[in-house]
Amino acid sequence: MCPNSRWLLTTAIAVLAMLTTAGVSAAQEYPGWFLNPGALDCRTPVVGYSYPAYHADSAAVLAIRDGFINYAKQRDLTISGGQAFWTTEIGMFWMGSNFVESFDSSRAGHAENVLAPQDTVFRDSFIFTLLAGDGCELNDDARAMHQMGASGQPAWVEATPKDSAFHYGVGVAPQYFYELSSWREAEKYACRNLARTILTSVQSLGKLGYQGQEIINEEVPVRLRDWQVAARWMNPDEKIFYVLVRMPKRQRGIVEPESVLK
């Protein structure tokens, strides 16, 4: 083989390898603390995410900082705004939305004194770390890696739990290039659904006649306090990510719709 053809072959193999390995690498194994944070015997467990960095310790620091921000959100998060839909005979169309999430970011600084990293998992596509208050001890099951799909779909995925202790919200997200984006989107929608359970304002303007049409507007002026992620799950076949969040029902000043509206 002449040098040129050898070079050509090497290049072809490299290109082929590049093309076949490109895409989302999803190792579908997660530690128990990530899948069931609600079952942990820890004070204020929070998970922080970050994208991979050249230096692993940089990524871990970013994940810890993200955890501090999530801590601040979980203490007090105001969700306000709404969205409108236009319904006609041929379907329902989205008209627009203006949801806003706001929280006191100065609490993130306070989190440094309250939380400590408990465990961190490094993946090709993202890094996630568990932070919790002092005295948190993870048992073997919490540290063990669980294969997605091995134990079937949890019940909360289809039927939102209902009990007298907590309000619940479930959020879903499809698979994105970065897995982190999927988990974040699922969490965002879970919080929004939790807020809707507490208070939703619905206005509907219908017109029936030659053409039937309706405009539906919904608004959510809710403040979530001391909510937490209770569980996460991923459907390995359909590549759908699920997050369950909950907030205690009996707590002073959970919802302040009036003050938010004004």
Binding site: E158, T160, K162, V170, V172, T197, I198, T200, V202
Partner: peptide, 9 residues
């Protein structure tokens, strides 16, 4: 609408 929830999805 206080307490309305998506019971099943």
């Amino acid at each position: 609408l206080m307490g309305s929830r998506a019971a099943k999805v």
